[in-house]
Design a protein around this nucleic acid. Sequence first.
DNA 1: GTGTTTGCAAAGTGTTTGCAATTTA
DNA 2: TAAATTGCAAACACTTTGCAAACAC
Lengths: 141, 141
Amino acid sequence: MGIHMPWPSPDLAERLRSAGLRPTRPRLALARLLFDAGHRHVTVEELHKEAIAAAIPVSLATIYNSLHQFTAAGLLREVVIAPGRLYFDTNVDEHHHFVWESTGMLQDIPEKEIAVLGIPAPPIGTEISHVEVTIRLRPLD
Amino acid sequence: MGIHMPWPSPDLAERLRSAGLRPTRPRLALARLLFDAGHRHVTVEELHKEAIAAAIPVSLATIYNSLHQFTAAGLLREVVIAPGRLYFDTNVDEHHHFVWESTGMLQDIPEKEIAVLGIPAPPIGTEISHVEVTIRLRPLD
DNA sequence: GTGTTTGCAAAGTGTTTGCAATTTA
DNA sequence: TAAATTGCAAACACTTTGCAAACAC
C-alpha cells in the first residue's frame, strides 16, 4: 500500500476482479482511461466526454455507477473542492492539494513535502482516518 | 483582521450596511441566528428550519440568497466536506476542521494549534489564498 | 418615489433509480 | 443458465431564476 506501479499498468481486469468488480467492457474501458496514464483528477462529465471521444459509448449513469463503485472499492478517492465541483482522484494515497480558486483546477502535493504538526488528539470515540491539507490559490495581481 | 468580538455582538444592522447589504428584516433575522451565538456551522436546510421555528417566515430562496450574499461580503465562509454537504461557517478567520465521516459533523480547530510546515511555493502566477487542514474522523472500533 | 429585496412558483442542474435487455462467468 | 451489469428514461433533490408585490431609504 502506498506504492504505485508506473505504467505499464498491472492487469486491469485482475485489478477490478480483486476489488470485487466484474471486469465488464464499460468498466475496463473506464479503468483504462483512469489508471493507464498516471494520476488524474477527473469529473463525471469529463470522463463521459472522454469515453465518448474514445468511441466507448457508455451512458452517464454507468459513469456514475462505475466511479462510485471504484471509490467504494478503494481504487479512487473523492475530492470536493467547492459546491458542485467533485473530482475523482486516482491517487488514493495520503497526499495534499493545491486548488486554483479561479478555475477549480487541482494539483497534487506529495504527502512527504508537507508536515502537519500539533494535530490534536481525536475526539473520544473516534480515530483519525486521514489528514489533508488544501492550499487554495488565487491569481497573482 | 482575524480578531472577533465576543458577544454581545456589534450592531448587526451596521455590520450588514458596511458589507453593502441593506439591513432588511429577513437579513437581520438571519444575521441574528448566525452571528449572535458564537461560531456556527449551518446548512441551508438547518437555517431555514431554525428561522421558521423562530417565527421568521423566510422563504428558502431568501435563505439561499442571503447566505450567498453574506459569503460574498466576507461574513461567512463556505465549507464543503462531501458531495452535497455544504456548510456555511461563521468563522471566517484562518482555522482548521475535524470532520466526522460518519455523520458529516464539523468542529473547528483553532489556527494556532496546528503548524503546517513545508508548504511549497505557490505556482507561478498565483498566491496562496489560504491553507486549511481537514482531519477526517471515523468511529473507533 | 426609486431602487432593492422578497416570496412564490417555475425552470434548471446534477445525480439516482427502476426495470427490461444485455452481458459475464 | 443464473446472476450481475447496462442503458434508458423517469424520478429526485437541491439550487437558481423571473417577476410582481413589498419594503428600505
